[in-house]
Design a protein around this nucleic acid. Sequence first.
DNA 1: CACAATCACTGATCTGCGTAAGTCCACGCT
DNA 2: AGCGTGGACTTACGCAGATCAGTGATTGTG
Lengths: 264, 264
Amino acid sequence: MDRATVAAHPRLDVCHHRSSALLTLHSPFARKLGAFVALTSEEMAALDRLHGRRKTFPARRDMVHQGMTNQSCYILASGWVCSYKLLSGGTRQIVDFQIPGDFLGLRSVLFRTADHNIEPVTKVEASEVLAGDLLDTFSKTPRLATAVLWAASRDEAMVVEHLVGIGRRDARERTAHFLLELGARLKLVGLGTASGFACPLSQYMLGDALGMSAVHVNRVLRELREGGLVTFQRGQVEIHDLDALVALADFDKSYLDHDGPLLK
Amino acid sequence: MDRATVAAHPRLDVCHHRSSALLTLHSPFARKLGAFVALTSEEMAALDRLHGRRKTFPARRDMVHQGMTNQSCYILASGWVCSYKLLSGGTRQIVDFQIPGDFLGLRSVLFRTADHNIEPVTKVEASEVLAGDLLDTFSKTPRLATAVLWAASRDEAMVVEHLVGIGRRDARERTAHFLLELGARLKLVGLGTASGFACPLSQYMLGDALGMSAVHVNRVLRELREGGLVTFQRGQVEIHDLDALVALADFDKSYLDHDGPLLK
DNA sequence: CACAATCACTGATCTGCGTAAGTCCACGCT
DNA sequence: AGCGTGGACTTACGCAGATCAGTGATTGTG
């Protein structure tokens, strides 16, 4: 399977209906927020209006980089992006990957200047959300501000889990954990299943995300493959022994879940 | 200087005036939020009302631990706390330290169950904020929701910087960066100066925060001391060569700053 | 006052992982 | 066809930092 097909997967497409019928399926982003705050049709509509101009970005060319001011944020419709920080030595640390349905660049808007880079991993389609529109929406439909706060907290929980992994897990555990988390997230938005998913990341990117060298990523992936746990080849991750992987990684997916709206 | 005096430092005390005079100094927390959203006196008052019962916690006994449900959050008045996650192997990773004026436990409220532990480093005084009160306040004074979103983003930026450090900086750089960040934060709330600050952390805690062994923390601190950069002894950090330290750590404090309210 | 804890600090040994330096595809150019 | 580029994958070597196993000083406590 070709990498590019990941970005073109039909299920990635965001629904654009402006209909106000209560049961209409809205964007994956709206569905995600709805999991925390039970949204009224009016709030749903406000969310849909937020989706501004649809933009396309080519793979591998930064959408945003450190120090840029007056940025917009984006709601990812298709493709993958990563956010990373550069260090003076020329190395980088990838902080997170965003997949379809994810919100990105919130921090770049709230602080007026971007504190990290955003690079599309594949070709990307995203709706631009202008800073002003976002803040307006918050003041007109205040519960959406709380909903976005919740979404941001969920992102923070992922960063925290990532931090824990890099700080206290060894390379194999870390890699296993990463693949499991990615799989769980993809499953939530309807990409991938319990047994595998398409993944456009190179071993270099994995290395930059996991805080290790690409060489070592390769070694670890081989070990995991030879141990019959997972294979990651030609852009495809296949999970062969989920239980063993979960045990190895000490994976607890509760931080990705939510058990129904907190705000009625 | 005794450790305990850190917690008892007079400047740590939160101001409790309920006066609605516009120019009253409010809590450090209110001042922090005011840096992002220009707060009206009414919003200030709502914030002050948020401070619920004042509670005291002894050092070293978890206030909150993973899996607890229906938690409150807290506004720290005096003392230090750390938030950490436990791994199955028995090791832990400290994610962040909170100092007076910081808000803690937001994630434990938004997700209904705590995803991390919170342990007082010293004896601690904090105002409890009940989950319901917080959400009420958001709906009644919506701009406060946006302000808290901003504060949460700032915390996330710190976690990100921490992640970058553990992933891509070596032990000396990481330690230097940590001390600089801590110093900068303490200076913002009026504890400590450019040349030093009181710090109640043991080398074990530093190790758990920096993702290294306490043994190695000790060696690194010795190197930094012998190099004439910083000394960290008997609960006191003295910065002797700020420039060299900033250069070593590749420290850029912009992620801690804010340049005036974004929301008028 | 003895005791158990907790902490700073040290030296010796071992190892996970980075670095350097490659090979071997599969591809999109011209 | 001939070249350049980017990714997967190796092997050999060396080092940063973990682990183990201590010492001694300073606390708080029954």
